[in-house]
């Protein structure tokens, strides 16, 4: 009897301590193997010269020194900054679209989901569609230019415009994403505060700025976070629309890294990893900010 109590009671007394680890084990294991450990492995690989198959040669920080003199790296970095800057337009654009659509007229539900459509389809399709839209001989853009008597612009073949052209394509689904975040946020806006604002004579812009936007802060926060991450992750559209060209002028860090590590330009795993580490460090600035704000929320929530 005493024996069985002792045997049983260990689990009984401690199960609330042990249980979380049993539940966590499979998920943490998978995540560690495929995500956490590889981050550190990449950092290590960035210190080697490695073609992915043969022996690794330790070269210290030489990959990083090479980066400092690499024109293509700077082009990619600047393009990433352009992405960060202009991709952000999705946030206000999404806000205004949500304000436009936050009505209760006939069929508005369907209209809202159709507006959201671009986000659901693959970026591969978005890229193909826009590559075609920009085509200088028969694309819609060229047609519009011709209608107004201008020389059609070869957006994707012109070093000056190519990155903006790709970002514009990226804005299409991203704006839809921000729109849906704001639509949900607008649903939760306190109607009493709106009425109170109206009684105080607040209208239009003033109402938006002083009453509505503060209440939309959680939506704005998420919209900014996903847009920043989307901008730094931009790879699909660049790969589909231009392959980084012309002459590498539309590369971004994510694409340049892939090109160095895995394409016909050579399997320079170490150099690629160094580029990835730079991208990771930039991203970490934003991730830390996000975690910090979550941490504050958690502490308030307790």
């Amino acid at each position: 009897m005493a024996d069985s109590i002792a045997g049983k009671s260990y689990w009984h007394q401690n199960q609330r301590r042990i249980a979380p680890w049993i539940f966590l084990a499979p998920g943490v294991f998978m995540f560690a193997v495929y995500v956490i450990i590889p981050i550190f492995q990449s950092m290590e690989i960035s210190l080697y010269d490695w073609d992915g198959i043969g022996e690794k040669t330790f070269i210290g920080i030489e990959n990083y020194i090479e980066l400092l003199d690499d024109e293509a790296f700077y082009t990619s970095l600047i393009n990433n900054l352009l992405w960060l800057l202009f991709y952000m337009l999705a946030v206000p654009a999404g806000l205004f679209m949500s304000l436009f659509l936050n009505q209760t007229v006939f069929g508005i539900r369907l209209v809202k989901s159709l507006f959201f459509f671009p986000f659901v389809i693959s970026q591969v399709v978005v890229g193909l569609v826009f590559a075609w839209f920009y085509d200088p001989t028969f694309g819609l853009l060229a047609l519009i230019f011709k209608t107004f008597g201008f020389q059609p612009l070869a957006v994707l073949a012109d070093e000056r415009y190519v990155t903006y052209g790709i970002i514009f394509a990226g804005l299409w689904p991203q704006t839809a994403y921000c729109m849906i975040l704001y639509l949900t946020g607008l649903n939760a806006v306190d109607p009493e505060q709106i009425e109170a604002g109206r009684l105080d004579g607040a209208k239009g812009w003033r109402m938006l700025w002083h009453v509505v936007l503060p209440q939309l802060r959680p939506a704005t926060f998420i919209a900014v976070v996903v847009t920043v991450i989307g901008a730094l992750r931009s790879f699909d559209l660049v790969s589909i629309m231009t392959d980084g060209g012309p002459y590498g002028s539309s590369r971004v860090l994510a694409y340049y890294m892939y090109e160095q590590a895995l394409s016909e330009y050579g399997f320079r795993m170490g150099y690629g990893a160094a580029i990835a580490v730079v991208l990771f460090v930039i991203m970490m600035v934003y991730i830390s900010g996000f975690l910090w704000s979550m941490y504050r929320q958690e502490r308030e929530g307790r």
């Binding site: 495929y34 590889p38 730094l232 860090l253 892939y258 795993m269 690629g272 990835a276 996000f290």
Partner: peptide
């Protein structure tokens, strides 16, 4: 936070090891 942060990392930092 490990799960949250990992979810946001750029894919390229995982590419070579994975």
């Amino acid at each position: 936070f490990m799960f949250v942060a990992g979810n946001f990392v750029p894919f390229q930092i995982l590419m070579v090891p994975v």
